[in-house]
Design a protein around this nucleic acid. Structure first.
Lengths: 190, 190
DNA sequence: ACCACAAACTTGACACTGTAAAGTTTGTGG
DNA sequence: CCACAAACTTTACAGTGTCAAGTTTGTGGT
């Protein structure tokens, strides 16, 4: 049955279609025309809701940040109450998300196409970051810039996520293969 | 004056053209047809030297790894002899390269298109990694897997490079803005 | 109930892209 | 000198993003 001229909720349908296509076929599997086709509209329909493909990608990235935040919070909520345990759990959530959502993770962190001018995206990224920042707060020394601890933890977990991803792609020979993040994290000092 | 039918050194010319286009216009500025045009040949000429665009990208990534390795060695060779000084210098070279060659850095580390089946690429990436691995050797404890130290350092510097890049793109509000890697590095323990 | 108008599409077109197939030019070895 | 393969060129196709013009329909005013 053909979709009537007015879809009714096309913006949302395009975002959902985009996330499905990313999950199924990676970055190159997501195109405007495929999103439009999956949403049941013509190839030019998205132009009314997104200025360009970059606009749609930014909206998808915002959604991705929300899922990312949820994954970290879910891990944190399952962990023991100790500050160090909670921080490690959040990092594990970070790495789980990166492993299970490689293309979305790429879009969020490595994509020059998305722009943080988008308020949804800016809000979502800020919220995600706050989870990590709050978990770092107990480790901040008196009169110390809290961003120092935050940057250290964030660099470590983000770097580990990136290298693990490269290790997964390149087979067993990659140096990061077999190294557990918990071991790297345990010797972290502040 | 028109290029004769036989270029003579087209493979190299395409790689050079590709690196120039990357530097000038970022990832989206590099296309097979533009490389061919810059090299003075038709759009189908590259097919004789590279199986596909991915093949050309892999060759460019190999070249990029070589430059990457040189940047780290240059910083190392300028630094004091202490093991910690040398490791920090190598990390600074890592970050310098990432900052000055954003698109090439992306191609090397974040590109799903390149494949390490390419022997040149595999060799170049291994050599680049060896620089970091050798600098980590002094910090490896007796009976400890050296990859543990290597992964820790590599995660920290790579993560910092990625976050700095995002900070540069998104303005002063990014949490990693203004944090010096040397400060993060100084408290690193093994 | 009717009508004007704007929102939300569709259709058609263009430029750019990667890749493939067929044809042409030229370097090289016998 | 010639055959043949390397190294191209030309042509074509499918897919892509974007744009402009046209069409459909929802909504608000009268």
């Amino acid at each position: 049955m053909k979709t009537p001229h007015h879809h009714g909720n096309l913006r949302e349908a395009l975002i959902v279609a985009g996330m499905e296509l990313l999950q199924e076929g990676g970055t190159s599997g997501l195109t405007l025309r495929k999103c439009a086709a999956r949403a049941g509209v013509s190839h030019a329909a998205p132009a009314h809701h997104f200025k360009s493909l970059d606009g749609l990608l930014s909206a998808i990235a915002a959604r991705g940040y929300e899922q990312f935040a949820k994954t970290m919070m879910a891990e944190r909520d399952k962990s023991p109450d100790g500050a160090r345990d909670q921080l490690l759990a959040i990092c594990q959530g970070y790495l789980d998300f990166a492993e299970k959502n490689e293309a979305l993770f790429d879009l969020i962190f490595n994509s020059v196409e998305i722009t943080f001018d988008d308020p949804d995206l800016d809000n979502a990224s800020t919220l995600a970051y706050q989870i990590l920042a709050q978990a770092c707060a107990p480790f901040v020394k008196k009169d110390q810039d809290p961003r120092y601890v935050e940057t250290k933890v964030w660099s470590l977990v983000h770097g580990f996520a990136c290298l693990s991803r490269q290790a997964r792609g390149g087979g067993g020979g990659h140096p990061a293969c077999g190294i557990a993040f918990a071991d790297v994290f345990d010797s972290l000092s502040f």
